[in-house]
């Protein structure tokens, strides 16, 4: 498919092992939840028994290790591998909560321009040979960091919040991605109460504009922040609605037919519901 460092004789006799799928998680706009999505989707997929590698492509602003609680275990990073200072296996950090989950951290002290695009493509391809899913956490923006995060991907998940600027940026990113990546949408940080009061764009509003296959909807929940504080992805928590929403996304990614994503007003609590009933708009 691409020009990889191909051996002169591709092993013709052994049947090719099933190649994993590389998915880039992107958004254009910063801070909408790419890293949170990557960590939770990866965790949920791993708990379904899939072998999953997470690649932090946000070189210079590494975050994925923190969300996973792995910051103290990171010794090498993606540039060490790209520059052949260490073997890929050495740089992969084994997750502490999920048996099948591995992280390739970003380099904190380097810049996005230091990454060689072609080498990145080869690295993702190599990971696809070893894992069922390779999730790439894309940096904000549409510059070189974006190019490098996208280059090896087969598919894209775009994360959007119900805000004008975020939707606009997703629209731009989807335009840049073209048809190749079959982008699917996750709408993050939805506040059903605000939507009901007409103070926030609804899932339908957003997707009547973007018109993408809807992979999931995640409410704006303290759960997510608390989990990030602890370094334990919310997808691990059986009692959490947000966790369940991420597990449903994982099921969809794995090809299962699960009911259409929604967020419920219930999540906001009884008082909030009362308030919405009597309060009206301000």
């Amino acid at each position: 498919m691409h020009e990889l460092k191909v051996d002169p004789e591709p092993a013709a006799e052994s049947p090719p092992a099933k190649r994993g799928k590389a998915i880039v998680i992107t958004s254009g706009k910063g801070g909408v939840g790419k890293t949170t999505t990557t960590a939770n989707l990866g965790t949920a997929l791993a708990h379904r028994g899939a072998r999953v590698a997470l690649v932090d492509a946000d070189v210079g602003l590494r975050n994925l290790d923190i969300v996973l609680g792995l910051e103290s275990r990171v010794r090498y990073h993606v540039l060490d591998v790209l520059e052949e200072k260490v073997e890929l296996q050495e740089a992969l950090v084994h997750d502490k909560h999920s048996e099948n989950l591995f992280l390739l951290a970003a380099a904190q002290s380097r810049e996005k321009d230091d990454v060689d695009t072609e080498a990145m493509r080869e690295l993702i391809e190599e990971l696809c040979e070893q894992f069922d899913y390779v999730l790439i956490d894309c940096p904000a923006g549409i510059e070189k960091g974006f190019t490098n995060a996208v280059v090896g991907a087969d598919e894209a998940i775009v994360v959007c919040t119900p805000e004008v600027s975020a939707v606009r940026d997703v629209d731009r990113v989807v335009g840049l991605l073209g048809n190749k990546f079959r982008p699917q949408l996750i709408i993050n940080r939805v506040r059903p109460l605000l939507v009901q009061k007409g103070k926030m764009l609804s899932v339908e509003d957003v997707n009547s504009i973007l018109r993408l296959p809807l992979l999931g909807v995640i409410a704006d929940e303290p759960d997510v922040i608390i989990s990030t504080n602890k370094g334990e992805p919310v997808a691990l928590r059986a009692d959490s609605k947000t966790g369940a929403a991420y597990r449903a996304i994982a099921a969809r990614v794995a090809g299962e037919n699960v009911p259409a994503p929604t967020v419920e007003l219930e999540a906001q609590g009884f008082m909030a519901k009362l308030g919405s009933f009597f309060g009206g708009r301000r």
């Binding site: 007409g198 103070k199 764009l201 504009i209």
Partner: peptide, 18 residues
């Protein structure tokens, strides 16, 4: 008009011109 309706309208226009 609710602010979400305003947002939707602004979004429609900005994307058209984009």
């Amino acid at each position: 008009q609710t602010s979400s309706a305003t947002a939707k309208e602004r979004l429609r226009l900005v994307l058209l011109s984009d």
